[in-house]
Design a protein around this nucleic acid. Structure first.
Length: 114
DNA sequence: ACGTTGACCTATA
DNA sequence: GTATAGGCCAACG
């Protein structure tokens, strides 16, 4: 059977964009969940890198809805401003305190479990 | 070509 | 519950 376990699919970036776009407004998810959904159980860093490219390229991807496992806005510095990410999340009704999502576990949204 | 960096995660103590 | 260490893979210098 086929199982050429490619380390990284060529459509990996596009895959991440599509999945992030499915995140509902007012909800957040983590890099690990996205990586697992795409099959990259270990390589959540690649997910972050993909989102970085999306921001640099100006893709319409709500990357501000993606945070790390702790619910911390680790990539706030890549949004062109340290307060941009927090402001975007606040605009969606999410409370941010010290670059950290409040009620993170409650707002957490699983891409494979809507 | 080699070494380092990076929007991370899981496991162990 | 927190703290530390290791792994993971791709892109950049």
């Amino acid at each position: 059977m086929k199982a050429p376990k490619s380390t990284l699919p060529p459509d990996f970036y596009q895959r991440v964009f599509e999945l992030v776009r499915t995140i509902p407004r007012g909800r957040v998810t983590t890099y690990g969940h996205i990586a697992r959904t795409l099959g990259l159980k270990s390589s959540a860093r690649l997910v972050g890198y993909a989102l970085t490219l999306s921001n640099q390229m100006g893709f319409d991807v709500p990357a501000h809805r993606v945070v790390n496992r702790q619910g911390l806005l680790t990539g706030k510095m890549h949004f062109g401003g340290p307060e941009v990410m927090a402001d975007l999340l606040r605009a969606e009704g999410i409370e941010i305190e010290n670059d950290q999502v409040q009620d993170f576990k409650r707002l957490l949204w699983d891409p494979a479990s809507p």
